[in-house]
Amino acid sequence: MALVFLVAVALLNARGIRESLGANVVMTVIEVSGLVLVVVLAGLVLGRGDGEPHRVIEFDESATPAFAVLAAAVLAYYSFMGFETSANMAEEMRDARRVYPKALFGALLTAGVVYMLVGLGVSIVAPPEQLASSSGPLLEVVSIADVGVPERLFSLIALIAVANGALLTMIMASRLTFGMARDGLLPSMLARVLPGRRTPWAAIVATTAIAMILAATGSVAELAETVVLLLLFVFLSTNVAVLVLRRDVVDADHFRVWTIVPVLAVGTCILLMTQQSAATWLRAGVLIAVGLVLFVLARVTGSGGRGRAPGSGEAGAGEAGPGETGPGGTDADGTSDSASATASQPTQDR
């Protein structure tokens, strides 16, 4: 079933960015509605005197508070997955230097508030032991509230949330793979796009195949832990790059973060990496090794996507990439000119 689902996601991804993000908006509204429902139900339980507010500051006597917080932070990283990959879509929006930072921080703040309220509400309503042993912790809140909300309806919302996360991940993964191939960091075959839709079909096929292999060889918990570790590598390298690239002087106006932020981020990433198990490191190491092999292959063979001749089915330096502007000022799915920030401006958008 998981493989069929991934194929469906790939087909939607290949259809176009407008269709994919349209589906994302609908599913996000449903997902947020489910989370708000949990918060409201938790408030009702607390209002009738059945909640236990003191649980939010309690720790298991056998656990060290500092390490317990770190363990929870590692899992929380998975909840925030997707924000970092949204940068891959920056070249498909207007005035990215002004719009993207506001959108990113606004989304982080909104999600952070919602997640905090959900976490507090669930902890107040249900005992930690009950939540830990449950396959659907949020459903425990629905059950305890007992106000007539069908559990099947909430299960459907949870399923939509999973589908939404998968869709976003595959969209961003395919665009990232395409961009790296276009810039010569991966074999150029991954930069091939559909002639009409201009969507990166080769990158979509490759990333979907990897997702299928991972889905068939690991549990949800194992995959989540692996994703978290890989994200930590991404965040670590990104913040190191910020510290290095911020020394460059550019003429264009762009967002600039305080130096202390990437420094703290590097330290935090390293600290959280130490909390991962050996099995997670092994799985992530295999994936990183595969990526390094592809990178070396692209370098040795000179098969980078930059500079490909138009009409070759690959997006070169002067061609429109997925969702970028094509002839006549519109992209393949009929939207207007949106490529204001291109991959050729890495130092201006850091």
Score class of each variant (00 low, 15 high):
80 F>V: 03
90 A>V: 14
97 R>S: 12
102 K>Q: 07
73 A>W: 00
104 L>E: 08
121 G>W: 09
67 F>L: 12
63 A>H: 12
66 A>N: 03
113 V>H: 04
96 A>H: 13
88 N>H: 15
68 A>I: 05
101 P>I: 10
114 V>D: 10
117 L>V: 01
78 Y>V: 15
84 E>R: 05
117 L>F: 10
88 N>K: 02
88 N>T: 14
92 E>F: 00
68 A>G: 08
82 G>C: 05
106 G>Q: 09
84 E>K: 01
99 V>W: 02
115 Y>F: 15
87 A>D: 07
118 V>L: 04
101 P>H: 12
116 M>Q: 02
80 F>L: 13
113 V>P: 10
109 L>N: 01
112 G>N: 08
97 R>F: 06
86 S>K: 05
116 M>Y: 11
80 F>P: 02
89 M>Y: 14
120 L>Y: 10
118 V>D: 03
99 V>D: 10
121 G>S: 05
115 Y>D: 01
111 A>K: 15
69 V>G: 01
84 E>Y: 06
66 A>I: 11
86 S>T: 13
109 L>A: 15
120 L>W: 07
72 A>C: 01
76 A>Q: 10
96 A>V: 13
64 T>G: 11
86 S>D: 07
114 V>Y: 05
80 F>R: 09
64 T>C: 05
85 T>A: 10
89 M>A: 15
115 Y>N: 08
80 F>K: 11
70 L>V: 05
114 V>Q: 12
90 A>N: 09
104 L>F: 13
103 A>K: 02
92 E>Q: 12
78 Y>N: 01
85 T>S: 08
70 L>R: 01
111 A>M: 12
102 K>V: 09
92 E>I: 11
75 L>K: 06
64 T>L: 11
80 F>E: 07
104 L>C: 03
116 M>R: 00
105 F>Y: 15
80 F>S: 09
98 R>W: 08
88 N>Y: 09
89 M>D: 11
92 E>C: 09
92 E>H: 04
80 F>Y: 15
86 S>G: 09
103 A>S: 08
117 L>T: 05
113 V>K: 04
77 Y>F: 09
82 G>W: 00
93 M>P: 03
111 A>Y: 08
114 V>A: 14
64 T>H: 12
83 F>H: 14
116 M>T: 14
78 Y>G: 00
74 V>I: 09
110 T>M: 10
86 S>I: 06
78 Y>S: 04
95 D>Y: 07
117 L>H: 06
113 V>Q: 03
81 M>L: 07
121 G>T: 07
89 M>R: 14
120 L>I: 15
68 A>Q: 08
118 V>Y: 05
69 V>E: 01
110 T>Q: 02
107 A>R: 06
65 P>K: 11
118 V>H: 04
66 A>C: 00
65 P>A: 12
110 T>S: 08
69 V>H: 00
75 L>M: 06
96 A>I: 04
69 V>N: 02
116 M>V: 05
79 S>H: 04
98 R>N: 07
89 M>V: 15
85 T>M: 02
76 A>H: 07
104 L>R: 13
67 F>P: 00
71 A>W: 07
74 V>C: 10
107 A>N: 02
100 Y>C: 02
